[in-house]
Design a protein around this nucleic acid. Structure first.
Lengths: 146, 146
DNA sequence: GAGTCATATCAAATCATTTCGATATATAAG
DNA sequence: CTTATATATCGAAATGATTTGATATGACTC
């Protein structure tokens, strides 16, 4: 374990607990790192407090949003949809991609909540969801060339 | 091809070109959809103008950023790093994950420009990159529960 | 209802990612 | 110079994603 670092110091700096109970794998590792069972136990407690404060489901949902945006073709579709509502045959033609592939990627964007679908006769018209989608694309652009 | 839609109408509504040249696959499809070679050619031209205006490399770079954020473990690491700079052994302990896995995920975050690494003796300390990272996480949160 | 068109779903092949133990590198301490 | 620690990299297995033709569904047309 490193000697410096704000959180690191806070994590390992406590020395109250005394009881030498059986340690779980996480604490075992910390104990080995610090060479001190008591400190390790408290450090692990602090770390566990953080990891438990994480909403596992929300994290997975956010990851799904990012995964939907992690494909160049899907990103291009999102950019194209800023022009307005388009149906599958227009999108597949714009990018010269097979129909099944285009439909599949649109379903991924839809499942992630990035686009909305509207049935109109035999056409399925897709549009950007209202909300943060465009802001996200802009931020990513800033991230890359900024 | 659908009869309605702002861009759709614009795409198919032009009727100047006359020459019946050999059509590429993309135009062939549009021609079949519209039933008109001339209209199809102009529509395809408009679509091609858009697809050519797309910066392929920038799109790939943006996709890489999103892909780096598309894993729950990596997202959790980013959240943890808001607490401050941490080394690999602290992160692997916090989440009770193998060292090789933790190191691997950090390298992905680094390659995407989301975190910065600083060598300090035998430790590698990681911190969030300055810039839009935190904003991106916040937006994703809004996206999910908003 | 037969035919056509737009879209979705399926299935198999290909390709990429994740995981984790094992090994390699590199820094520090003795 | 040996040992221990922190991290990176390798390699192989498992898992997941993408691609594409083929098929299925569902709506409009005659």
């Amino acid at each position: 374990m490193p000697p410096a670092g704000a959180l690191a110091a806070e994590l390992i700096g406590m020395t109250q607990a005394v009881e030498p109970e059986p340690l779980d794998p996480c604490v075992e590792r910390l104990a080995k790192l610090t060479g001190d069972r008591c400190k390790a136990k408290n450090a692990a407690r602090k770390l566990q407090t953080f990891t438990e404060s994480i909403d596992e489901a929300a994290l997975a949902a956010e990851a799904e949003v990012f995964k939907a945006m992690s494909d160049p073709f899907r990103l291009a579709i999102l950019h194209l949809l800023r022009e307005g509502e388009l149906c599958v045959c227009e999108i597949m033609t714009a990018f010269d991609r097979p129909q099944s592939s285009t439909s599949h990627h649109l379903s991924i964007l839809k499942r992630a909540g990035l686009v909305k679908e509207r049935k109109d006769g035999k056409w399925s018209r897709y549009r950007l969801s209202e909300g943060a989608v465009i802001e996200m694309m802009n931020l990513a652009g800033l991230m890359v060339d900024g």
